[in-house]
């Protein structure tokens, strides 16, 4: 297993991570130019995730705005040992999007929306802004290495906003099994992607 670990475009990813961490430090010191650069580097991911979770571009735009303002306000509280700058920002984004979806939609409505409204597909070339072609293929390949139940648990939780308890109910699976699927799946994904 370790011999297939290659990492996401190694050096380039590492440079990006170092730069984002440094930018966030400058933002914490009130540097608005650094904030603009950080915004440009992260907004497509923040907005795209909000669209994926909420399946509503107008609400996703509000959430993206709230997240970026929260990044500005709380930059001084950023802890680099929590997945780096990108880990922190995407945690804020996922949490806000999911809080909104839970507040506004019952689980049944979420099912219904998920079934009927596919999120807009990314136009060709757009996600290359964020992950180059090789890395997107790598993410797909790594997702393919998960077991079907691991993939289902991870997707329902991260993109659809279900808690692990809700995932357990929906899939008629014991809680401990769902927790283990999520953790084992994420560890497998981490090792395959070579992040961290």
């Amino acid at each position: 297993m370790p011999n297939i670990r290659r990492g996401m475009s190694g050096q380039r990813e590492k440079r990006r991570k170092t730069r984002l961490d440094a930018l966030l430090g400058q933002v914490a010191a009130g540097d608005t130019a650094a904030f603009e650069e950080l915004y440009d580097e992260t907004i497509a991911s923040v907005y795209g995730l909000a669209v994926r979770v909420l399946r509503d571009p107008a609400q996703a735009e509000e959430i993206a705005q709230e997240v970026m303002v929260e990044v500005w306000r709380k930059a001084g509280r950023y802890d680099p040992a929590r997945g780096g700058a990108m880990g922190w920002i995407m945690t804020l984004a996922q949490r806000r999007a999911v809080d909104r979806v839970r507040a506004e939609q019952s689980a049944a409505e979420r099912d219904d929306l998920a079934a009927r409204r596919e999120p807009p597909a990314a136009p060709d070339g757009v996600a290359e802004l964020v992950l180059d072609r090789l890395d997107r293929r790598r993410v797909r390949d790594c997702l393919d290495h998960l077991t079907a139940p691991q993939l289902q648990s991870i997707t329902l939780a991260y993109y659809d906003g279900y808690t692990y308890r809700e995932v357990a109910e929906r899939t008629d699976t014991p809680l401990s099994t769902v927790k283990a699927r999520m953790r084992d799946g994420m560890i497998r994904l981490r090792d395959c992607l070579g992040v961290a």
Partner: peptide, 9 residues
């Protein structure tokens, strides 16, 4: 630390 970097991906 590693799992949050992973969910960010």
């Amino acid at each position: 630390d590693g799992l949050l970097a992973t969910s960010a991906v």
